[in-house]
């Protein structure tokens, strides 16, 4: 009987190997593993065998059954996979077809730039605050050492709300610097803030001038703040925004509310300092005005200039994407042509 079992296994496995369809597979299962199969009959008739033979035959029959079952399962999986592949054959995907479009917009380039700038300064411990666009003459000029009839008023062509001229006149702020005063009126050192915001000028618009633009003001006040700290802070800023290899130049300049005054320039992004039309053949592009907060400004907000010192800076925002992307007309920003905005 053992011999019969061995022959059965060889025959069954040989047949299974040749099967290619699921129907044949089912017939095979009934034939070899079904209730009426020879293997089953053998397993049922074991009781009539003598004890010793019963044990060895039974063990062998069970092993063969397990082998056949396992092989069947394997064959089923192989056949299943083949079936799936053959069914896909008919409708193959053209994976080069475009995907389902999901429309998405973009942030305005100025928003993107403002976020970047503020992020750099936030990493250095500066807090972002905002202030009003419509200001008193007092904050925009007077408190910043630019009283009535001061020649520096020529530097700020102003759009006025009120037509009289005194410190109670309202105007559209010409810079974000009035927030230096507002912040220092309300906070005591240590102070570290940046102020993004819209500014306005009474100015005919052309490719390089806009009547509305964005600035970011910075202010740090505490004991022992120095021009060296200002240089370090703005060095870091310029490297963060324009890359490690960018050279930064600090030179003397005049703003009535700082002393010493500083102008910060970086090597031209177009010519790398060699000189070109964009940088007026100087190799340098001015990007920031800055300086140490003027002692008279500190006194005005009751901060003792003998004990405290601070630096302030103001940065034109449009300039940055213009330099980076070679945008040659500032009016594109607020013209809001989608063909422009979608590029950023």
């Amino acid at each position: 009987m053992l011999e019969e079992l061995e022959k059965l296994q060889i025959k069954a496995l040989a047949e299974l190997d040749k099967i290619t369809g699921s129907r044949e597979l089912e017939q095979w299962r009934i034939r070899y593993l079904g209730k009426k199969s020879r293997l089953n009959q053998i397993l049922h008739s074991l009781s009539i065998l003598p004890l010793v033979e019963r044990r060895s035959t039974g063990a062998r029959a069970n092993t063969i059954k397990k082998t056949l079952e396992a092989t069947l399962k394997e064959k089923e999986e192989i056949l299943g996979e083949a079936l799936l592949l053959s069914s896909l054959e008919g409708r193959r995907l053209d994976v080069t077809l475009p995907g389902q479009p999901i429309s998405s917009g973009r942030f305005h380039p100025i928003t993107q730039t403002l976020e970047e700038i503020c992020q750099v300064f936030q990493n250095m411990g500066f807090q972002v605050v905002e202030g009003p666009d419509v200001e008193w003459d007092y904050y925009n000029f007077e408190a910043l050492n630019i009283p009535q009839d001061h020649p520096a008023r020529d530097m700020f062509a102003t759009l006025w709300i009120d037509s009289d001229r005194d410190k109670k006149s309202r105007l559209l702020r010409t810079h974000t610097s009035p927030m230096q005063i507002r912040v220092m009126e309300q906070r005591r050192p240590p102070i570290r803030v940046v102020v993004p915001g819209r500014c306005y000028r009474y100015e005919a618009t052309d490719a390089t001038h806009e009547s509305m633009f964005y600035q970011v003001e910075g202010l740090a006040v505490d004991k022992n703040i120095t021009l060296a700290d200002l240089k370090g802070t703005l060095f870091d800023f310029c490297r963060c925004l324009f890359g490690e290899e960018r050279k930064v130049r600090f030179r003397c300049d005049y703003f009535p509310f700082v002393e010493p005054g500083v102008e910060v320039a970086i090597t031209c992004l177009t010519c790398n300092g060699a000189g070109c039309r964009l940088c007026g053949y100087s190799g340098w592009i001015e990007i920031l005005g800055a300086g140490m907060v003027h002692p008279d400004v500190l006194k005005r907000v009751d901060i003792d200039p003998e004990i405290y010192s601070g630096f302030a800076f103001g940065l034109g925002v449009e300039r940055i994407p213009m330099l980076r992307y070679g945008i040659d007309d500032i009016r594109l920003f607020y013209g809001n042509d989608l063909r422009f905005l979608r590029q950023f």
Binding site: M124, G125, Q127, R187, P190, I191, R192, A220, D222, K223, N224, I225, T226, L227, A228, D229, K231, G232, T233, F235, D236, R249, F250, R251, C252, E259, P260, G261, V262, M292, H294, P295, D296, P305
Partner: peptide, 29 residues
């Protein structure tokens, strides 16, 4: 008018490029 004005005079003639570069070391607000 003030000492700060004199500071600028001294530093601008010596050169702003001679001023050291340091990171803010003051206490954080």
């Amino acid at each position: 008018k003030s000492a700060a004005d004199l500071v600028e005079e001294v530093v601008r003639i010596i050169g702003y490029d001679k001023v050291p570069v340091t990171r803010l070391g003051s206490s954080l607000p």
